[in-house]
Amino acid sequence: MNYRQKRIAINNIVMTLSTISALIGLSFLFWILGVLIFNGIEALNIGIFINEGAPPGYENSGLKQALIGQLLIVMYATAAGVPLGVLAGTYLSEYSQGSKLAEIIRDISDIMMSAPSIVIGAFVYAIVVIPMGHFSGYAGAIALAIIMIPIILRTTDDMLQLVPSTLREAAFALGAPKYKVIIQVVYRGARAGVLTGILLGIARVAGETAPLLFTSFNDNFLNTDMNEAMASLTVTMYNYATSPYEDWQRLGWAAAFILSMFILSLNIIGRLFLLQKRGK
């Protein structure tokens, strides 16, 4: 075998091995999605959206309480986490001017991003749930906001830094005060990237179960009072899926399907924003 044949042989072996590995990885992904879609769609019906939870064996049981609870908790978490994350990212990129504090904040948020979410759940349990004396939707929203902030903070920071400094200088050279430069020029330039960061942040927390187990807990019936324990799709799914009743298990599949589709669409929308930006 000469040098050229050897090179081609090695190339073929490596290519085959990497292709097989990719296929194995992908096949699990499609297997999961396939089972989820098959069981999820089968379990879906209108009743799921209009009925609340019911004891096993009742015909008219649904997920209304979990859907609304999930939406409320994620909305409150977003309302708290997005402004904090975006403003903190703005501080890092625009105001900190390379200070030590900024580097420390960046490092801590990187660590926070990989912190197990159950730890954050336990933390909120200790500082919110125990002093209040009961589980609440607020506590769940706080836990999710804490998970969301470092993600949004870092993407905002990165995206704002991508805006060329000459653009800022040009705005200053026209006599713009700093806050106007940031809002009217820098934010505009980084809009698509920051929005993507926000959407990915929301998508990330929408799928969290562990921090909600400790905080908003669960409720089998519809509750819109954020000061009370509240159902969520993830915790409901966990409870129903581990129950011995077949009709509850079916509801668990439906919850898993709805949640996955929600997160999948957030991710796709986020990526479309980025593509649109690059296309320009």
Partner: peptide, 27 residues
């Protein structure tokens, strides 16, 4: 801020803001 409205600057690379042509000039 007042000084920079009286002494303007044109940069090496064009620095069109990410907005419409009209809004750029009206900025």
């Amino acid at each position: 801020i007042t000084l920079r409205t009286k002494i303007g600057m044109i940069f090496q690379k064009p620095t069109a803001f990410p907005m419409s042509i009209f809004d750029n000039v009206a900025y």
